[in-house]
Amino acid sequence: MARKFDSKRLVIATHNAGKLREISALLAPFGIECLSAGQLGLPEPEETGTTFAENALIKAHAAAKASQLPALADDSGLSVTALGGRPGVYTADWAERQWFEGDPGRDWYMAMGKVEGLLCEQGDDVDRSCWFSCTLAIAWPEGDEVVYEGRVNGTFSWPPRGTMGFGYDPVFVPEGRDMTFAQLDPEEKHKISHRADAFAKLVAEQFGS
């Protein structure tokens, strides 16, 4: 049996404000106070895993140990069929770190452009199907852990559209829609995203009857 979450405070192992907002919104119905690793000044551990689950667990355990609170980490990424599943687990690495007014950030437009460039090299008829994967890991200071995985299929669209969301959202059109994740109302995105899929599994096991 997986350990059950029984705390009112949860550390979200991220320094990404957009990711914190999404996860906080998904957990709001359960009255859980979410604090980010960034707000607590926790360092970002080196993500040495070769799968989403490995990296999520690395981040969750590091945050739980440092804060002595349960911690939730998400490792997610975009996989493109014509690129053999790349960038996949290296999704964030394709967005090279830049410095903006003294703060480190990632150049997501550069990352999206890399994908588009590689697709264009394969010609006009290239398969643009892709998918977002999300792995959620909860870790406790005592060392317990649970993992949940989600996915949403879609199409890689160019040029980027929309100002909501983050990461590769401006180029991802989910199946059955004609707008990108960055154009969808956040509440609508929360219903269909890869993160929502993983969260549905988490909620069913952690908060279900």
Rank of each mutant, 00 (worst) to 15 (best):
S36R: 02
S36P: 14
A37C: 05
A37I: 09
A37P: 07
A37V: 11
G38K: 05
G38W: 06
G38N: 02
Q39V: 07
Q39T: 12
Q39F: 06
Q39N: 05
L40E: 02
G41M: 06
L42G: 02
P43T: 12
P43Q: 00
P43F: 01
P43G: 02
E44Y: 03
E44S: 15
E44L: 03
P45A: 01
E46R: 12
E47D: 06
E47H: 08
E47T: 13
E47S: 10
T48P: 04
T48F: 06
T48W: 00
G49W: 05
G49D: 04
G49I: 13
T50N: 10
T51R: 10
F52G: 03
F52T: 04
F52P: 12
A53H: 07
A53K: 12
A53P: 10
E54V: 13
E54H: 08
E54K: 09
E54R: 08
N55R: 05
N55Y: 07
A56I: 11
A56N: 06
L57P: 00
L57N: 04
L57W: 00
I58H: 03
I58C: 09
I58Y: 04
I58K: 05
K59F: 09
A60K: 09
A60Y: 05
H61G: 09
H61Q: 15
H61Y: 01
A63M: 03
A63P: 12
A63I: 04
A63G: 11
A64E: 00
A64T: 07
K65H: 10
K65C: 11
K65S: 15
A66D: 02
A66R: 04
S67E: 07
S67L: 13
Q68I: 01
Q68K: 13
Q68M: 08
Q68S: 14
Q68E: 10
L69M: 15
P70W: 01
P70M: 01
P70Y: 00
A71P: 11
A71Q: 02
L72N: 06
L72Y: 11
L72S: 10
L72A: 11
A73F: 06
A73E: 05
D74A: 12
D74I: 13
D74E: 15
S76C: 12
S76N: 14
S76L: 12
G77T: 11
G77F: 06
G77C: 08
G77I: 14
G77S: 05
L78S: 10
L78H: 08
L78R: 12
S79E: 15
V80W: 08
T81P: 00
T81V: 15
T81G: 00
A82H: 09
A82G: 11
A82T: 12
L83S: 13
L83K: 08
L83V: 13
G84A: 02
G84L: 04
